[in-house]
Amino acid sequence: MSDIRSFDGAPEAGIRDYFALLKPRVMSLVVFTAFVGLLVAPQSVNPVVGLASIFFIALGGGASGALNMWWDADIDAVMTRTQSRPIPAGRVTPGEAMWFGLTLSVLSVVMLGVTANWFAGAFLAFTIFFYVVIYSMWLKRSTPQNIVIGGAAGAFPPMIGWAVATGGVSIESILMFAIVFMWTPPHFWALALFMKSDYSKAKVPMLTVTHGRRVTRAHVLVYTLLLAPLAVGAAFTSIGGPIYLTVAVVLNALFIWGGWCIWRRDETAAEADSYKIEKKVFGFSLMYLFLHFGAFLAEAALKPWGFGGW
């Protein structure tokens, strides 16, 4: 079937294109970690309010994605893995993406404030601002620490979920933030190692471009080592317990081992096997985060039965 086209011959945007602007894969992480933050909080929330809140948090995450695609359209047109996105492919104009993102941003923030509380709404507004302005507009194109500092935007959702239930912040929500924050650099740097020239073509100062792959490999190992005590330490708070501790110890040992394997490699060996280890560590890093937060969820689910927690 041929593409539907507008009067000027350009492909016409469809629902799938606007959905793609929301970065659904990234949104799934936002939804899951926010959902866990909400459910493990000490205060219970009406199920309708809880589900509505998660929807608006997801909408805010999607709005951030749309505004990021609007700002980064020039980069996306150069990088191989992003050339088929709606804006560089010509299915959505930059202006349409901008207004789509801005509209969803305002809607999500206002509706979360009305549905849950205004602290959570303000927290969501700050998260959108941080991702779009601090990360996308400033850090991404100016420093190799873009992923390190900018990773905070992706780490805020569990704190927002917690704020929906409690109206505030606690050591538990900060630790959930810290786990995602410290996980982000080794996760993305493992990807950058096998993305080869994409970032250099787009003139994005990723660590692999500015400091080389040897330095990037060392940074992956260092961050897995720094992440481990934070992840394991969360086991000894009110949201942890023996199940989470077991999961955290095993996963962090494996992540450190993956970081060690990446650090030991040289480019000749990596190129020879098409960056097989780097791809495995990147894939494992996705599972790592979901299993940690799944363990938090398991502890919360088992507490009413006398099994979860200490």
Rank of each mutant, 00 (worst) to 15 (best):
T268M: 10
M79W: 07
F296E: 02
S142Q: 13
V106Y: 02
R81N: 05
F126D: 01
L251G: 03
A295Y: 03
G167F: 04
M98G: 00
L67T: 05
T246V: 11
Q145N: 13
M176D: 09
P229V: 06
F194A: 08
V133W: 13
L286A: 12
V92P: 09
T82G: 07
T143P: 08
T80G: 11
P229K: 06
I128P: 11
T237V: 01
I134V: 15
I149L: 15
L291M: 14
K203R: 14
L297S: 12
L227R: 01
T82P: 07
V92D: 09
L107I: 15
Y18D: 07
V30D: 08
R91H: 11
L22F: 06
I75D: 07
G150W: 10
V109H: 03
G60N: 10
Q145Y: 13
G37F: 09
S200N: 10
V92C: 03
W118D: 00
K303S: 14
A234G: 03
V169F: 14
F282W: 12
K203F: 02
F284H: 03
R5G: 08
G309M: 00
L29I: 13
R265H: 05
F123Q: 03
T166N: 09
A300I: 00
L193V: 12
I171K: 05
V249Q: 01
A163G: 04
A234W: 00
A192T: 07
K140P: 12
K303P: 05
M111E: 11
A63C: 09
F100Y: 13
S105T: 10
E12L: 15
V36R: 11
A120W: 02
R5I: 14
G65I: 09
M176S: 11
N68G: 10
S105Y: 04
G167D: 07
L227G: 02
D198F: 03
P94D: 03
S285I: 05
W260S: 08
V133F: 14
T210F: 01
A41N: 07
G14E: 13
F55C: 06
N117P: 12
F282H: 09
R16A: 14
A235H: 02
R81H: 06
I87D: 01
